[in-house]
Amino acid sequence: MKTITKLWASAAICGAMLTGMAQADPHPTAELIIEGELHLATRAEPPEHLGGALPEIYSGWLFRTDETRELQMDDFDNPGILFTERGLDRWEMADGATEQSCADCHGDVESMAGVRAVMPKVNEDGELWALQNYINNCRTERMEADAWGWRSEPMKDMTSLISLQSRGMPVAVHMDGDHAPFWEQGREMYYTRFGQLELSCANCHEDNWGRMIRADHLSQGMSNGFPTYRLKNASIVPLHQRFLGCIRDTRGETFAEGSPEFIALELYVASRGLGLPIEGVSVRQ
């Protein structure tokens, strides 16, 4: 009995704490406007499939400092834009045995508008592919060039460039039909408590967003800003690099970047952000 009473007392203290934590919430009024022109929504109604797990969905941008948020509002200040510029050079550069460039088949890069918004997507063979898989397929099959590494500079450049073409377009991943089993797999992973610390994605990003783990302000883990320029890494960071880091930090055995597991997780995480726009290349801490 004594123990039960203490548990209740402890729960009451937790409840009192929760009400006093508004200081760590996402920024209440900031608006993301790029170059004073393009307004990107950073708050949206949660998708139905979340079943009320989140009251509203928020871009990770709202959880960052004033300085970091400002960097993303100006393309001259956004270091990720440099990657897109190098990407455009690569777009037009002939490569591989066929001596073809991306532009030779696809024309202007603007033809890629909307592509990032539906990634990852099931291919003709029924496999779930991320943008990186489609890029490498073009390189190895059509250009007869070497595949790019998931974390390589050219891959960062090209994914940044292609993402920029979808800037402002809503996340539009598919969850049903061919995509359903992959989505279910990703959902299962999201709630799995990995590693010796037994932490799931949901522990931090669904149950504790807005709170602090040491100096880290927990966001809702939305992926619509990826690939993101991460100040801590001083580079473009692909989503799978963050997945890998998170599972490693659970004292867990991670999955590989580009693995089927991470692509399934990418699909599910993207679907939690249905309603938010692709930010092109975002800036995070």
Binding site: T192, R193, F194, G195, Q196, L197, E198, L199, N203, D207, N208, L244, I247, R248, D249, T250, R251, G252, E253, T254
Partner: peptide, 26 residues
């Protein structure tokens, strides 16, 4: 609870336990 179990040395109790913070298998 989200709090880790600090006194358990049985890897079978965990899902994909790692070798400390290396990201590799335990």
């Amino acid at each position: 609870s989200m709090m880790p179990v600090f006194y358990n040395d049985n890897p079978a109790d965990y899902i994909r336990p790692g070798n400390a913070y290396t990201g590799r298998a335990y």
